Deep mutational scan, measured.
Amino acid sequence: SSGGSSILDRAVIEHNLLSASKLYNNITFEELGALLEIPAAKAEKIASQMITEGRMNGFIDQIDGIVHFETR
């Protein structure tokens, strides 16, 4: 797709992000992006959206560029 990722790509990214949230206590956007094979800024945006929508527990430290995952 030309304008970003398809629905399937997005679903795969979100699935992998949720998997990462179970493996890590926290991770930088750079590391997360590398893990998900997407730019760091996109990793931040998707993580932020999932947390806001209540689909993933955690919070974002924008100063240090880190996602902190919280286990249920």
Rank of each mutant, 00 (worst) to 15 (best):
29 F>I: 09
18 L>T: 05
64 D>N: 15
54 G>S: 04
30 E>I: 12
45 K>Q: 15
64 D>Q: 15
26 N>C: 09
24 Y>G: 04
55 R>K: 10
70 E>A: 09
51 I>M: 07
39 P>L: 04
10 R>L: 15
71 T>I: 10
22 K>G: 06
13 I>W: 06
68 H>I: 08
50 M>G: 00
27 I>W: 05
32 L>C: 01
63 I>D: 09
53 E>S: 08
25 N>Q: 14
37 E>C: 07
8 L>A: 14
32 L>G: 00
67 V>A: 03
58 G>V: 03
19 S>W: 11
14 E>T: 04
52 T>W: 10
59 F>Q: 06
38 I>N: 01
9 D>Q: 06
47 A>C: 06
3 G>K: 05
46 I>A: 04
58 G>T: 00
53 E>W: 04
35 L>F: 09
49 Q>V: 07
60 I>Q: 01
44 E>Q: 12
24 Y>R: 06
48 S>D: 08
65 G>W: 04
60 I>T: 02
50 M>V: 02
26 N>F: 15
31 E>W: 05
24 Y>N: 04
28 T>F: 03
16 N>G: 10
32 L>P: 00
51 I>F: 07
46 I>E: 02
25 N>C: 09
52 T>F: 11
39 P>S: 14
5 S>G: 12
52 T>C: 07
20 A>Y: 15
61 D>F: 04
18 L>Y: 07
7 I>Q: 10
65 G>N: 08
71 T>F: 09
49 Q>I: 08
21 S>P: 02
71 T>L: 09
2 S>C: 07
58 G>Q: 02
5 S>I: 13
56 M>G: 01
9 D>A: 06
45 K>I: 12
33 G>M: 02
36 L>Q: 00
63 I>T: 09
6 S>V: 13
50 M>N: 00
35 L>S: 02
52 T>R: 09
16 N>S: 09
69 F>L: 03
19 S>H: 14
35 L>D: 00
58 G>L: 03
53 E>Y: 04
49 Q>R: 06
60 I>D: 01
2 S>M: 12
71 T>Y: 11
60 I>V: 09
56 M>K: 00
12 V>A: 11
23 L>K: 12
65 G>I: 03
34 A>N: 10
57 N>A: 10
48 S>Q: 14
25 N>F: 09
53 E>Q: 08
11 A>N: 12
66 I>V: 13
61 D>G: 04
35 L>G: 00
3 G>A: 11
9 D>M: 06
11 A>Y: 10
49 Q>K: 07
46 I>K: 01
64 D>Y: 14
63 I>V: 13
22 K>M: 10
5 S>W: 04
31 E>H: 08
64 D>A: 15
10 R>K: 10
48 S>I: 13
26 N>D: 06
20 A>T: 08
61 D>H: 06
42 K>V: 15
11 A>V: 12
25 N>L: 12
43 A>V: 14
11 A>F: 10
41 A>G: 09
15 H>N: 14
12 V>F: 08
40 A>V: 07
67 V>P: 01
27 I>R: 04
24 Y>T: 04
2 S>Q: 11
65 G>R: 12
66 I>R: 15
5 S>E: 14
55 R>W: 06
37 E>S: 15
17 L>G: 01
46 I>N: 00
38 I>G: 01
12 V>T: 14
61 D>T: 06
63 I>S: 09
32 L>V: 00
3 G>Q: 11
61 D>E: 05
24 Y>P: 01
67 V>E: 00
3 G>E: 12
38 I>E: 01
22 K>H: 09
43 A>Y: 02
46 I>Q: 01
25 N>E: 11
9 D>I: 07
21 S>L: 08
57 N>W: 11
58 G>I: 03
8 L>N: 12
20 A>E: 02
51 I>N: 01
28 T>D: 03
71 T>G: 11
26 N>G: 05
4 G>Y: 04
27 I>L: 14
63 I>Y: 09
50 M>R: 00
53 E>H: 05
13 I>H: 05
27 I>Y: 04
34 A>E: 09
23 L>S: 08
70 E>I: 11
53 E>P: 01
19 S>L: 15
63 I>R: 09
59 F>T: 08
16 N>F: 12
69 F>Y: 03
28 T>P: 04
33 G>Y: 02
8 L>S: 14
42 K>L: 15
12 V>Y: 08
30 E>A: 11
59 F>I: 08
66 I>K: 10
41 A>I: 08
30 E>F: 08
15 H>K: 14
27 I>G: 00
28 T>S: 13
22 K>A: 07
28 T>Q: 02
40 A>S: 08
30 E>H: 08
59 F>L: 07
5 S>T: 11
5 S>V: 12
71 T>E: 11
18 L>E: 04
42 K>S: 15
54 G>T: 02
69 F>R: 01
44 E>N: 07
27 I>N: 00
48 S>C: 07
13 I>R: 03
43 A>E: 00
45 K>V: 09
6 S>C: 07
57 N>Q: 12
66 I>L: 09
46 I>L: 09
70 E>M: 10
55 R>T: 08
21 S>A: 09
3 G>Y: 06
29 F>Y: 03
71 T>Q: 13
4 G>E: 15
19 S>K: 15
10 R>F: 13
23 L>D: 06
31 E>F: 07
52 T>N: 14
20 A>V: 15
14 E>D: 04
45 K>S: 14
32 L>W: 02
24 Y>D: 01
41 A>H: 13
42 K>A: 15
6 S>H: 13
2 S>T: 12
14 E>S: 03
28 T>E: 02
44 E>H: 13
30 E>T: 11
25 N>I: 11
24 Y>F: 11
42 K>Y: 15
21 S>D: 02
28 T>V: 01
60 I>A: 02
12 V>N: 09
41 A>D: 13
19 S>A: 15
8 L>Y: 14
1 S>G: 13
39 P>H: 06
2 S>V: 12
44 E>W: 14
64 D>F: 14
60 I>P: 00
44 E>P: 01
25 N>R: 11
13 I>Q: 05
64 D>K: 15
29 F>H: 00
35 L>P: 00
34 A>Y: 11
58 G>F: 02
59 F>E: 08
33 G>R: 02
20 A>P: 00
41 A>V: 10
64 D>I: 11
42 K>W: 15
21 S>W: 04
30 E>W: 08
49 Q>Y: 07
23 L>E: 07
24 Y>A: 04
54 G>K: 06
22 K>E: 08
50 M>W: 03
32 L>T: 00
47 A>T: 10
27 I>A: 05
2 S>A: 11
17 L>K: 00
69 F>M: 02
37 E>W: 08
3 G>T: 12
17 L>T: 02
14 E>A: 04
38 I>Q: 02
28 T>A: 05
15 H>A: 15
50 M>Q: 01
11 A>D: 13
20 A>G: 02
65 G>S: 07
34 A>C: 06
40 A>D: 03
56 M>Y: 03
15 H>Y: 13
32 L>E: 00
64 D>T: 15
10 R>M: 15
7 I>M: 13
37 E>P: 02
51 I>T: 01
61 D>C: 07
31 E>V: 07
14 E>M: 07
50 M>H: 01
50 M>E: 01
59 F>Y: 14
52 T>G: 09
13 I>V: 08
44 E>F: 13
30 E>R: 08
30 E>S: 08
2 S>W: 06
60 I>M: 04
33 G>N: 01
35 L>M: 08
13 I>T: 05
24 Y>H: 07
5 S>Q: 12
40 A>G: 07
62 Q>E: 12
7 I>A: 15
66 I>W: 05
33 G>V: 04
15 H>I: 12
10 R>W: 15
23 L>V: 11
8 L>W: 11
64 D>G: 15
7 I>E: 15
63 I>E: 10
44 E>T: 08
44 E>G: 11
